[in-house]
Simulated scan of single mutants.
Amino acid sequence: MGGDLTLVEQFLNTLDERTFRRHGQQHVPADHLTSVEDLAGWLEEHSLAGRPLSPADLTAAVALRTALRAALSDDAKAAEALAGFPLRLTPDASGTLRVTAVSDVPGLDAVVETVASSVAAGGWHRVKLCAAEDCRWAFYDTSRNGGGRWCHMEACGNRTKTRTYRRRAD
């Protein structure tokens, strides 16, 4: 995955909206960023921990996640929400420029910079939310033409196609 979009994918999936039933088990939706401690744990797990966090940092993290998910859903509100996460061109020690985020929230800058690099390199279009209404899991589309719609064809794709078939058969 270009620019380590795995980090972005995992950040997006801290909101688990899946509600489907699979192998007799009902999936229960969950938000894994409901407290400052949750955010601190996620950042630590991804080696992004920095200064101690505040409730404002949690608010910013949830706002970023919401804005990125909205952008993947072609929601017009995404542009306004993403405006709170500015970027700058910053020279590095070798004299070249790099894009840096200036959110001042430990760890979030890495997510924003990865998204920005991915957009610039043309890889962002492969980050998607599953088209299954009862899933919406973020995934990186590895299909040859970039036309993948489901996080897992054998699960979400199969469920969706089976539902469509049954509706037509009735």
Rank of each mutant, 00 (worst) to 15 (best):
R167C: 07
A70H: 05
V111A: 03
K161N: 03
L68D: 04
E17F: 12
A56Q: 14
V8S: 07
A63V: 01
H27G: 04
L33T: 08
A121S: 12
E133K: 00
H46Y: 10
R65L: 09
A30N: 11
Q10S: 14
N145T: 03
L33C: 08
L68S: 04
Y140M: 02
T19R: 14
S118C: 08
T164S: 15
P29N: 07
A83N: 06
T114Q: 09
V28T: 13
P91V: 09
S47W: 12
W150N: 00
C130N: 00
A155N: 06
L64V: 05
T142F: 00
T34V: 10
A56P: 05
L15V: 14
E44G: 15
L15W: 12
Y140E: 02
D16T: 12
V105T: 15
A61D: 08
R126M: 00
H32C: 11
G147S: 15
R126K: 02
S143C: 02
G146Y: 01
M1D: 06
D109M: 10
M1Y: 07
E133W: 00
V111E: 02
G24H: 10
H23F: 15
V36S: 13
V127L: 10
T96I: 04
H32V: 08
G148L: 03
D38H: 13
G147V: 04
K161T: 01
E154T: 09
S35V: 09
L64D: 04
N13Y: 11
R21T: 14
T162A: 15
E9V: 15
D170V: 15
G41R: 15
S143H: 01
G146R: 00
S73H: 04
E80L: 06
R159G: 00
A101H: 11
L7F: 13
P52S: 12
C135E: 03
A83V: 00
E17H: 13
S103R: 07
L64G: 07
C135S: 07
P91S: 08
A110I: 05
R168Q: 13
L5I: 14
T160M: 02
